[in-house]
Write a protein that binds this DNA or RNA. Structure first.
Length: 292
DNA sequence: ACCCAGGGTCGTC
DNA sequence: GACGACCCTGGG
């Protein structure tokens, strides 16, 4: 068990830029599960949270080590004005207006850098249900247990905790060919060849990206996801099969989407969405995937 | 049963 | 710079 834990409660007013399904099922996170009552339960750091929307309230309950208000304010970026962002992005074109209308309650989370790094290495050539399963098994095996409402939850394993896993252990948990990548990257951080705090403190997004790309299992797409979801660099534009598809269909119209150059999509995103490209990406990704 | 694709990366040419 | 291989699993 972790240090002193207590039940906490916090509420805020409901608003149009906060929808649990939009936030948790737009592909940015893998540790939230929908309950039968429509609420979501998940783990943030050493805290277990349940979140529900009732009447005019967004209600946070949890077994927490950190102050719940501070925790959710940071994690959900509650001080970021999404009404303003959506208004800005709506000016771009009809397509973006449609995707924003579809996923108007999306917010980009500020997730833990280590968890985001490992989770998105796992995401390579993988599908979301399986990614969630792998992370769940990793946490159960190597994370810390937290009991909440008579159920067990497990924190995402720290560097030290994850370093206990051998390549074979990871393979047994279903990591597939990503086993070695996770093992090697974990070792680099354990041996302090890289430092999370140091990376967090680098202002220049390009510089951070270069460092991330040195890590086993981190290519351009994974690096951009880490920059967006772990470091909230909203100007990066992760390009996966779905985003490639939607950008090709909307703007480029190449007969074979796989032939479209990444650079062309990147430039297009930069021109059209500028500093909000990453947020635009989430609206487009969620819209395309859910209506496919 | 079989095939395909999935929030790609890596090694090789 | 392009191309195939790669673990595994849910859905067609």
């Amino acid at each position: 068990m972790v240090k002193k834990m207590e039940k906490q409660h916090y509420e805020i007013e409901k608003n149009d830029s906060f929808n649990l399904q939009h936030i948790f099922e737009c592909g940015q996170c893998f540790r939230w599960n929908k309950e039968t009552d429509g609420s979501y339960t998940g783990v943030i750091g050493n805290n277990v949270l349940n979140i529900k929307v009732e009447n005019n309230k967004i209600i946070f309950n949890g077994m927490c080590e950190d102050n719940l208000k501070d925790l959710v304010t940071k994690y959900f970026n509650l001080n970021t004005d999404y009404e303003k962002i959506k208004k800005e992005l709506s000016k771009v074109d009809e397509y973006l207006r449609t995707s924003i209308e579809f996923g108007k309650g999306i917010r980009i989370l500020k997730q833990d850098l280590w968890e985001t790094l490992i989770s998105f290495i796992i995401s390579a050539n993988n599908n979301i249900p399986r990614i969630k399963g792998i992370i769940e098994r990793l946490s159960k095996q190597y994370g810390k247990r937290i009991e909440y409402n008579c159920k067990n939850y497990y924190t995402f394993p720290s560097i030290e905790e994850l370093s206990k896993a051998s390549v074979e252990d990871l393979r047994k948990l279903g990591l597939g060919f990503r086993d070695k990548r996770i093992y090697e990257t974990t070792k680099l951080f354990l041996e302090e060849k890289y430092d999370l705090k140091e990376i967090e403190n680098i202002k220049d997004t390009k510089k951070v990206r270069e460092i991330l790309l040195e890590l086993p299992g981190v290519g351009p797409k994974v690096a951009d996801c880490i920059l967006l979801f772990g470091l909230n660099r909203f100007d990066v534009f992760p390009i996966d099969v779905w985003v490639r598809r939607v950008m090709n269909e909307l703007y480029i119209k190449n007969e074979d989407e796989t032939k479209v150059k990444k650079e062309e999509i990147e430039n297009l995103a930069k021109i059209k969405y500028a500093g909000l490209a990453g947020i635009a990406q989430q609206y487009l990704f969620y819209w395309k995937r859910e209506t496919a």
